[in-house]
Structures are given as structure tokens and as C-alpha cells.
């Protein structure tokens, strides 16, 4: 008799095949979220808010309630859901364009209110679904379809560090930047997601986990090259670690 040591999380539909690109980390992150919710016995108590972008594909993949916000408005939508349903676990899942560009006001304001929600912020330095345009987190010199010569600080400014920016506010309780570039960091990401959710259960207020990831398709690199770029360039600009923990 074989012993079952690993099975797909109940947070992801059993028969579902992901449509994410090879090397994309969204699938991995949704798996981690599913595992955390399952371990915390929260799958039936969760309402998730998807940002606009590739992450929206996951609406069909996960097994719990979810909705799509207009581009950038996830934190506002989550605010409405959480205020009227304080007993539910409410998290947003947003890319860099969603959270740090079009939704900057909603993200910062929810953080500033100390809204009791958890934000999963996936930062790969580029717009994925629309096809590789410059993001607020695009590295200096990094090429994008709307910055064909690469990000030029004289014209485009510098990458935004959302954890550090939110760290200027008084209300947020927990801000951590992680990655999924190695098994160890993937475990660290899972622990951070769990902590963010636990903070919400404990009514502690606003938590954000920024996960630095890759986008092989729009970076124009294969998955292995993308990992290298992530390790060598992205993580230099976006150092991993706990930016704030007042939980």
C-alpha cells in the first residue's frame, strides 16, 4: 500500500489545468494561498478579490468565492466586502500595474485606514496580460513595449517600492517582501501569506505580502533565464525581508 504524501490543495479545483505561461509563478502562488486557507480551515469563509490582469484567470481555478474588481480598485472592493462581512477572510490579489499604478490611491488609502484585509501583491515589473508595457516597478534600463529603449529615469522615474512606501504610514500592521525563486523562499512566501491571513483573523488590520516574481513571456526570456534575471536584477532592486511587523 502506497502512502499518499502530497495531494493538490482543496483550494484549487481538482480537474483544473492552469492557463498560465510556462515559468509564471501565479499558479504557484494560488497553490500556496489554497494550502494556507485549507490549513487554516478558511476555504468556506473566504471571499477573494482579483485584480485585473493574468491573475484573473485564477477565478476559475480556485474553489472559494471570488470576484473581479475594476482595474486598480481591488482594495476598495475588498473594503466594501470586509466592512459588511467582518467574519469573512477577504484578500486581494493584485499585480504591479493594478496595485501601484492605476490603483495607487485605493491601495494606499486602504493601508492608511488600516483596513482589516490581506493584500497579495505580485510584482514582476511589467504588465503581463496587456503584453509587456512598462509598470511602476519596471527596473531602470529594462525594456518594455512602451519603453522600447528601456526605462529611463529622466523620462519615467524610478521603480516604486510599495512595501517601503506603505511603511511610511502608521496603520499597516505587516509588510513583507518575498519571492518564489527558490524552494526556501517559496516556503517563506507561504509563511508570510499565512501570517497576513492570521493578522486579519486576529483583527489586527492591514497586511501586505509583496511577492517578487517573473514574467518570462513579456520579459522575452525563457523560464530559466527569467529566474536568473529575477535573482540577479529584480531582487537587487527589491530586497526581500520583513519591512514591518507590528503584529
Amino acid at each position: 500500500m502506497m502512502k499518499k504524501v502530497y495531494t493538490r490543495t482543496a483550494g484549487i479545483e481538482a480537474d483544473m489545468v492552469s492557463g498560465f505561461c510556462p515559468g509564471c509563478m501565479h499558479g504557484l502562488i494560488f497553490k500556496l494561498i489554497g494550502e494556507v486557507l485549507e490549513e487554516m480551515n478558511l476555504l468556506e469563509e473566504t471571499i477573494s478579490v482579483q485584480g485585473v490582469g493574468c491573475c484573473g484567470l485564477a477565478m476559475e481555478y480556485v474553489t472559494y468565492d471570488n470576484t473581479t474588481a475594476p482595474h486598480g480598485r481591488a482594495c476598495a472592493v475588498a473594503t466594501g466586502i470586509k466592512r459588511t462581512n467582518p467574519d469573512k477572510l477577504v484578500y486581494t490579489y493584485q499585480g504591479d500595474g493594478d496595485l501601484a499604478s492605476i490603483g495607487l490611491a485605493e491601495s494606499m488609502s486602504a493601508a492608511n485606514r488600516g483596513e482589516n484585509i490581506s493584500v497579495i501583491f505580485v510584482n514582476n515589473g511589467i504588465y503581463g496580460m496587456t503584453g509587456g508595457q512598462m509598470a511602476p516597478t519596471t527596473l531602470v534600463g529594462m525594456k518594455a513595449t512602451t519603453a522600447p529603449e528601456g526605462r529611463n529615469p529622466a523620462m519615467h522615474g524610478y521603480p516604486m517600492h510599495m512595501c517601503e512606501i506603505m511603511n511610511q504610514l502608521t496603520a499597516p500592521v505587516y509588510l513583507e517582501r518575498t519571492s518564489c525563486n527558490t524552494p526556501a523562499n517559496t516556503r517563506r512566501t507561504k509563511a508570510a501569506i499565512k501570517k497576513a491571513f492570521q493578522n486579519q483573523i486576529d483583527q489586527k488590520g492591514f497586511s501586505m505580502v509583496e511577492i517578487v516574481t517573473s514574467c518570462p513571456t513579456n520579459w522575452g526570456l525563457n523560464p530559466m533565464e527569467s529566474l536568473e534575471f529575477l535573482n540577479e536584477k529584480m531582487l537587487k532592486e527589491f530586497p526581500l525581508g520583513v519591512i514591518r511587523d507590528r503584529s
Binding site: 471571499i47 478579490v49 470576484t67 474588481a69 475594476p70 480598485r73 476598495a76 472592493v77 475588498a78 473594503t79 466594501g80 466586502i81 466592512r83 459588511t84 462581512n85 490611491a105 485605493e106 488609502s109
Partner: peptide, 25 residues
């Protein structure tokens, strides 16, 4: 619940969220 949104845009989206849970908003 009452929330002063950071903008009209945020406010309608808060209402969009709350109403999705069946609460008159």
C-alpha cells in the same frame, strides 16, 4: 457601515463590493 472613500471611484467600488454580499448598499 459608513466609509468616506478616498474618491468617488473608490466609493462606488466599495459599494460594488458590499452589494456583492447581498447587503443593501
Amino acid at each position: 457601515s459608513f466609509v468616506q472613500g478616498e474618491s468617488e471611484i473608490a466609493s462606488i467600488n466599495m459599494v460594488y463590493g458590499a452589494a456583492q454580499t447581498g447587503v443593501r448598499s
